[in-house]
């Protein structure tokens, strides 16, 4: 039972409603694609799941544990930086711009968190990192510096960097936004492999072809609300909501 539960989450940024009473449950081992036009709040929702952005109301639970807050009576008190960091270490995140650390080699990018945060032994983590790099075909680049690699390569390293922490859920923010079209399909294949290994995933995208290729459940967002939510094939072939149909037609 390691569901990700997002209940009644709302958020404003300087008066503007970004998230409007969002409720979403991602059952353990399943993939949820957050689809929607830019500015619909999907990336913000993703950043709220690991408390990189604060929420104004509502509650987010992973494995039953409230993210970012401690409940006491009818109040939620924000956790200390240390406690939030510990929760984040169980949530993997891959950013649109990858955000690899340019001053560290590929290998160091991957092993720094397990060594510094999970206090694992360097030798063990290095072996594990090299194995993971092999699965994405980048073992020969272990000692390269990230800026010398292509976007697609950096993306896969960012995924490995998140995976090595053995997270309970993986968050992907627009994983294809900076990739050329050819790489989009191979990224979809990589993510499907992860989903076959029963990784719980939330994937934000505005790209229809990518969302289709991923299968799983799709939540369509617009103006900070989830308008429609259902299995990929249903939503793409028989959208219930006019706004969804409009978005599908335009793309």
């Amino acid at each position: 039972m390691s569901d990700l539960e997002i209940s009644c989450v709302s958020k404003k940024i300087s008066g503007k409603i970004i998230l409007d009473d969002v409720t979403l449950i991602v059952p353990s081992g399943q993939t949820c694609v957050l689809l929607g036009p830019s500015g619909s709040g999907k990336s913000t929702l993703l950043r709220c799941i690991n408390h990189l952005d604060r929420i104004d109301s509502g509650i987010i639970r992973l494995n039953g544990e409230i993210i970012g807050y401690r409940q006491s009576g009818d109040k939620l008190y924000e956790l200390s930086g240390r406690e939030i960091a510990r929760q984040r270490s169980r949530i993997g995140m891959v950013f649109q711009q990858y955000n690899l650390f340019p001053h560290l080699s590929v290998l160091e990018n991957i092993v720094i968190a397990p060594i510094k945060i999970l206090k694992k032994k360097r030798g063990d983590v290095t072996d594990q990192a090299l194995t993971l790099l092999k699965t994405v075909g980048l073992e020969s680049h272990a000692h390269a510096l990230p800026p010398s690699l292509s976007g697609g390569q950096q993306q896969r390293i960012a995924i490995v960097r998140a995976l090595i922490m053995q997270p309970e859920v993986m968050l992907f923010d627009e994983p294809t936004a900076a990739l050329d079209p050819e790489l989009v399909q191979s990224m979809a294949r990589l993510l499907k492999q992860l989903s076959e290994q029963a990784m719980t995933m939330v994937i934000v995208t505005h790209e229809l072809s990518f969302a289709r290729a991923l299968q799983g459940n799709v939540a369509f967002m617009d103006n900070g609300r989830i308008i429609e939510h259902g299995p990929s094939h249903n939503l793409f072939t028989h959208p219930k909501h006019a706004r969804t149909a409009e978005f599908l037609r335009q793309s």
Binding site: A85, R86, R88, G92, M93, F95, N99, A113, I117
Partner: peptide, 20 residues
């Protein structure tokens, strides 16, 4: 983005500063 990535991995504020 560097701070975000480090925080997302589970670094505390001082860890983010010191390591990244």
């Amino acid at each position: 983005g560097q701070r975000d990535a480090a925080r997302a991995l589970g670094f505390t504020n001082s860890g983010v500063m010191y390591n990244i």
